[in-house]
Design a protein around this nucleic acid. Structure first.
Length: 925
DNA sequence: AGCCTGGAATCAAAC
DNA sequence: GTGTTTGATTCCAGG
């Protein structure tokens, strides 16, 4: 979207979802604090205008009322606007850009035209896999930049939207509405982090792409890495159609130019500096959010990393049988014989679904013949892999019962398998779908996702690897979707819809191969953390499909990193009075006698406000534990909680990700014994606003003072408690962001994934923030793994998730004990994972919350909740009316926030949704 | 024989 | 511009 001055999105909700038409205009780039902060600034300051009639994200929501609101951006709640038939996006090119670079025009025509062009020129076959079979180089990754430049999926999406209404339901609504309150814009704008979205300005234009993009380059004959494509330009091909890179090398220059914004790996050091570069991504993200549907466009567009999933939608999706065939199998592969019959059916369904999708006139990938005969899947398409889906919806709740270990050495293609990902306990990760009472088996999909601060998306440098053998008890088979390999595992009713993931290994692709892909902007260096992403698609009687997704805690896949970097999995104290002095026990890995613990506080702009080295009890240092004395805060007279970070440092570049710590006003009692107490205390602390919100960012038009992010923290109980008796031991990590975060929807589904706190660019140390904090209450909890989640790459703090398209920004809040409301002793299963929290981070809000886990489910305060979970938490529960009352009264003074926080049960209040609602309401005043 | 691993040598990019 | 360090990849070897 290079050079966009205005981007107008018109969403037309599908018939099922009713959404009001909202419009909002927001300047992108520095001008928009939200965007700038969260997404890194754009060089230019384009304005995105979105008129949306929102809608919807992924289908599921359509079925239930609550759902309808699910994808709506906060603030954009349905106001009665009539639903439109189809989405329409309008993009206005920014005049300031050179014409040649401005692909988009203000009018739809242009867009369409462009789309057409890309389509025309980009005739791509389906992506075979992550790399060209004949050439190891990654088969295209679509990267963010591509969105702009090469007929990115985004663009395609726009285009398609206009043309394919039917797809709309899938799209994410998060677009910011034009004209509407600016407040909303932030969140929306922020979005997607999905991958690639960086530069709106990316350079390579579509036109260029058309011309150069798909040259018939001979495939590389071999998988040797980088060389395959020749100098500088590596080709990647989909189905054997390699194309060269356009003038802009995929690896963009780090310079934040509007023209291409490469994803630069971000390290602690450089994160801030690069912040601006990513702003574009915000735009892209926004677009991305809008283009969820993608069925068609994906197929048509150029393989963009962001749109890898595009193939998903495309009829061309191919199921791969295994072993290995990197190539898309011929038709026959679609349904394997060896796959369980039930599964086979499922497969067919999928196929059917694809078939059901009207072919886009321009689609470049044509349905394979064999597909034509299959029909079963009612859903028109499945959500792209980079879409953010909830972990629960209605009665369904997809949870990771047993989290994978925080380290798993991935294997290269040149090596043999390094086995399946294991659980901390020595077993294997376990995933279970709760609330599904049908007798028909389902298919659980697994792919390797990112663990950085941006939105969850398929990881370009890692692929799931199917493990077979006598030690593997779980059936599985591979399917290629776009460039992402997906492992499909049966979820059988007889197994209580529970699957033991002992068949999934992780394959590392050479960085050089991937980075040379056209459009790939991510860099592989130090981008070694991944998450296992699980999805399940449940067909509903009405023909709709509910898609759920949950992601594991981060997994460090680098041999070296795993051996050398200190990892803080748990901390015994989450918050303490500013006086400090208390000893805090850190548990984790790779601690050394000379390890240092550094507390740091950064301002919103990233500069250091305070940094001090804490005293480490060297005598007690062990490889897995470290005792440190909490240093006194620089200001002993703080009136509200102050969030800082600390990290363990084993050397210059060997530092752990940042852990959160909260200094409380001296007079604030520290409660930690009971969950409820902790909760209150935490909440209180969190709610109080501080002058310097950790993660918060200014809003465009703040009506109220920026609340402390913490104030907005949302607690996190699993939104959807397991219907089954079993309580997940692990924290659910669901994708951080949902397509649509309507309060309602959220209330129902709390994201469980660890998230991080701040948006990149935000005050929070760019460094890594620990996603999931260890919950002391649950020592065994795997949560800590989340710490690994941070990636340095991409300029964003590691594991921080970038704000969702809607501006939601998940935050890792886990477990800090103190803060922790998180810790829930009551949680059964010692592995409670993590509480994590998602907060709305539209820019200003910080979030910090911890989540709860739990075992129980929080009481559902929202009326919408069709199925209120039973509350097993020991948090004091207030009348639900209270919740509503506050939300409705439109007043949201900080004090009130604090009050509410104290009153409400963690599970309910400390949820992303809640938080969101608050903001929404308050800002609406 | 092949799969898993753990280690470590070798390369190459960053510093 | 060069030496050092760090991270990525490839090899080896043993279970």
């Amino acid at each position: 979207i290079t050079g966009l001055k205005y981007i107008s999105f018109f969403f037309f909700p599908d018939a099922y979802s009713y959404t009001p038409n909202v419009s909002l205009s927001l300047p992108l780039g520095m001008g928009n604090p939200c965007l700038a902060n969260q997404y890194h600034t754009l060089q230019t300051s384009p304005v995105i205008s979105v008129s949306s009639c929102h809608q919807t994200g992924y289908s599921l929501q359509n079925d239930n009322h609550a759902a309808s609101g699910y994808y709506l951006p906060h603030g954009l709640r349905p106001n009665g606007a009539p639903a439109l038939e189809s989405p329409r996006i309008e993009i206005t090119a920014y005049s300031q850009y050179p014409e040649d670079e401005v692909e988009e025009s203000s009018s739809e025509d242009h867009i369409i035209k462009r789309g057409v062009n890309s389509i025309v020129t980009l005739t791509l076959p389906n992506a075979d896999g992550y790399r060209d079979p004949s050439c190891l180089s990654p088969a295209s990754s679509i990267s963010s930049r591509s969105c702009n430049s090469e007929a990115s999926s985004y663009e395609s999406g726009f285009y398609n939207y206009d043309n394919s209404p039917q797809n709309s339901p899938w799209q994410s609504p998060c677009v910011s509405p034009r004209g509407s309150s600016s407040l909303l814009s932030c969140p929306h704008a922020g979005g997607p982090a999905g991958s690639p979205h960086h530069s709106p300005s990316t350079s390579p234009q579509i036109g260029a792409m058309a011309e150069e993009g798909w040259p018939a380059q001979p495939r590389g004959s071999r998988p040797n890495s980088p060389s395959c494509g020749g100098v500088g330009k590596r080709k990647y091909s989909f189905n054997g159609a390699p194309y060269r890179q356009t003038s802009c090398s995929p690896i963009q220059s780090p310079i934040p130019s509007p023209h291409g914004s490469p994803r630069v790996s971000v390290t602690d050091e450089n994160w801030l500096a690069n912040t601006n570069q990513y702003t574009n991504s915000a735009i892209v993200a926004a677009i991305n959010a809008l283009t969820t549907d993608g069925v068609i466009d994906m197929g048509e567009g150029i393989p963009i990393k962001t749109r890898k999933t595009m193939l998903d939608h495309s009829p061309s999706m191919s199921l791969k049988v295994e072993p290995g065939g990197e190539e898309l199998g011929p038709d026959g592969e679609l349904c394997h014989d060896d796959y369980p019959s039930r599964l086979a059916l499922k497969k067919e369904n999928y196929c059917g679904g694809f078939l059901d999708v009207p072919q886009h006139p321009y689609s470049w990938s044509k349905p394979k013949p064999y597909l034509s005969n299959v029909s079963c899947y009612s859903s028109p398409s499945l959500p792209a892999l980079d879409w953010q889906l909830p972990s629960c919806s209605g009665p369904y709740n997809l949870q990771i019962e047993v989290q994978p270990k925080s380290h798993h050495r991935a294997h290269y293609e040149t090596e043999g398998s390094r086995g399946a990902v294991k659980a901390l306990s020595g077993g294997h990760p376990v995933v279970q779908l709760y609330g599904y009472m049908e007798s028909e088996p389902l298919t659980l999909q697994l792919f390797i996702g990112t663990a950085d601060d941006r939105l969850l998306r398929p990881h370009a440098f890692y692929q799931v690897h199917r493990i077979t053998g006598k030690t593997v008890s779980t059936a599985s088979h591979e399917v290629m979707q776009s460039n992402t390999k997906i492992l499909e595992i049966p979820l059988l009713p007889e197994n209580n819809m529970r699957a033991i993931i002992d068949c999934a290994g992780i394959l590392k692709l050479r960085n050089s191969d991937i980075e040379l892909r056209k459009g790939e902007t991510d860099i592989g260096r130090k981008n070694t953390r991944v998450r296992l992403v699980f999805r399940v698609h449940i067909n509903q009687p009405n023909g709709r499909t509910v898609s759920l997704q949950t992601a594991s805690n981060p997994i460090e896949c680098s041999q070296r990193s795993a051996q050398e970097l200190p990892l803080v999995e748990k901390q015994s104290v989450e918050s303490y009075p500013a006086t400090g002095g208390k000893m805090m026990l850190l548990s984790g890995l790779n601690f050394l006698p000379d390890s240092k613990v550094v507390f740091v506080e950064k301002a919103q702009d990233g500069h250091h406000l305070w940094e001090t080295e804490a005293k480490v009890d060297k005598d007690s240092v062990k490889s897995s534990t470290l005792v440190v004395e909490i240093p006194p805060y620089r200001n002993q007279r703080i009136s509200s909680p102050v969030h800082v970070n600390f990290y363990v440092c084993n050397g210059k570049r060997k530092r752990s990700q940042c852990q959160r710590f909260t200094y409380l006003p001296p007079n604030v009692p520290v409660i930690k014994t009971e969950p409820s107490d902790e909760y209150d205390s935490l909440v209180t602390a969190g709610l109080s606003m501080h002058s310097k919100p950790y993660y918060s960012q200014p809003r465009l038009t703040p009506i109220m003072p920026v609340a402390d992010p913490d104030a907005c923290l949302v607690g996190a109980y699993p939104p959807c408690p397991p219907r089954h008796a079993a309580i997940p031991s692990s924290s659910p990590s669901s994708s951080p962001t949902l397509h649509d975060l309507s309060p309602v929807a959220y209330s129902k589904c709390l994201p469980s994934s660890p998230t991080h706190a701040a948006p990149p660019g935000s005050v929070v140390p760019p460094i890594q923030e620990t996603p999931g904090r260890p919950n002391l209450a649950h020592p065994a909890s795997p949560d800590h793994n989340s710490c690994l989640g941070m990636l340095h790459s991409q300029g964003s703090p590691s594991h921080l998730n970038s704000p969702g398209p809607h501006g939601y920004h998940p935050i890792y809040a886990n477990s800090s004990p103190s803060s922790s409301p998180v810790s829930h002793p009551s949680t059964p299963g010692g592995t409670a994972e993590s509480p994590f929290v998602q907060a709305y981070s539209p820019s200003q809000v910080q979030a910090a919350a911890s989540s709860a886990q739990a075992g129980g489910s929080p009481p559902s305060l929202l009326p919408e909740d069709a199925s209120p979970p039973s509350m097993a938490i020991t948090v004091k529960q207030e009348p639900q009316e209270l919740d509503q009352m506050y939300l409705d009264d439109g007043k949201l003074p900080e004090t009130r926030c604090a009050h509410i926080a104290c009153k409400f049960p963690l599970g309910n209040y400390l949820t992303k949704e809640r938080h969101f609602v608050f903001l929404d309401e308050s800002f609406s005043i």
